[in-house]
Computed example of a mutant assay.
Amino acid sequence: MGELGLNKIMGALLATALVMMGLATLPSLVFGGGDHGGDHEEPATLSEKMCTQFHYCVEIAEAASAGAAEEVFDLGAALAGADISRGERTFAGQCATCHTIAAGGANGTGPNLHNTVGADKARVAGFNYSGALSNAEGGWTYENLDAWLKSPAGYMRGTSMSFAGIKRDADRANVIAYLAANTEGAPAFPAPMAAPAPAEGEAVPAEGEAVPADGEAVPAEGEAAPAQGQAAPAEEAPAEEVQPT
């Protein structure tokens, strides 16, 4: 074989190697998944990971932050501010189909609800309660009534009451206050929750003392607080002592 034939074979092998290298890098060039010499940040979201690893770019909703605190319902505060007349209207619209509430009222699909607050759960003699409610322990405290009215089936599995529940906190508090108004000698409402303790190092204003706004100086003991919009008086510099001559 001559030198010309050997050169042709070497050229063909080189061309084949270049083609194979090109095919290996083609997906990176087309889809942009390769590293082109820059410093890339780690994908932060699931959408970015899908796009980077699988070249499938779609918007995926991220889960809510696990550290978000769930708001706690203050039943005591809600009952303290409850509107009995609104509770009566809610009762008439959602409860009166099955229940009466007047003293000595007849039972319907559900028992009469006069004198309910604080009573036993299956308190009406002769009414055909479900097995779950007949065997339930405890009484109708304000907390139990709130949980029952929010979701009867969720509060007590096996109940025959098909009512879906009252989801709005204020509406439930109004109905419970109306039940208490129709209960002779009803227990006192639960006390509202205590205010959260101040953070460490945070000053607590005395009773009757206004809380200073952010950035406003706290007056010293015995010093009057500046009026709203009035700047706090600057500290006076001590008078220069004159040495006797």
Rank of each mutant, 00 (worst) to 15 (best):
S47R: 07
L29C: 04
G33Q: 14
A68Q: 15
F91Q: 01
T159W: 05
L79I: 05
D120T: 10
A188M: 08
D169K: 10
G229Q: 04
G37Q: 11
A173L: 07
A225M: 10
F31R: 04
A77F: 07
S160P: 00
G87P: 01
L6C: 02
G110K: 03
I84L: 06
I84F: 01
G2R: 09
T90V: 12
V211K: 13
I84N: 01
P111R: 02
S65Q: 13
G208Y: 08
V204Q: 11
A102N: 10
P187T: 02
P226T: 02
M21I: 09
A69R: 11
G32R: 07
A66E: 15
L13S: 11
G138E: 12
N182P: 02
T45G: 04
G32Y: 06
V30M: 12
K121N: 07
H40E: 15
F31V: 05
A44M: 13
E143M: 08
T100D: 13
S134E: 15
F73S: 10
E88F: 00
C95G: 02
G108K: 07
V124S: 03
A122T: 05
G105C: 04
T109D: 09
G5M: 11
W140C: 06
T183G: 05
P212T: 07
N174V: 01
G110E: 06
M161T: 07
G222C: 06
E59A: 12
G131S: 15
P205Y: 11
R89T: 08
L23N: 07
G138P: 04
A78C: 07
T141S: 15
K8Q: 12
P196C: 03
C95Q: 06
G5C: 03
Y142L: 03
G154W: 11
T245S: 14
S47P: 02
S65N: 15
V117F: 08
Q228M: 00
G201H: 07
E223A: 13
N7K: 12
A12H: 03
A181N: 06
A77P: 01
H99G: 03
A195N: 12
E223P: 03
I9S: 06
P233F: 11
G22R: 02
A181R: 04
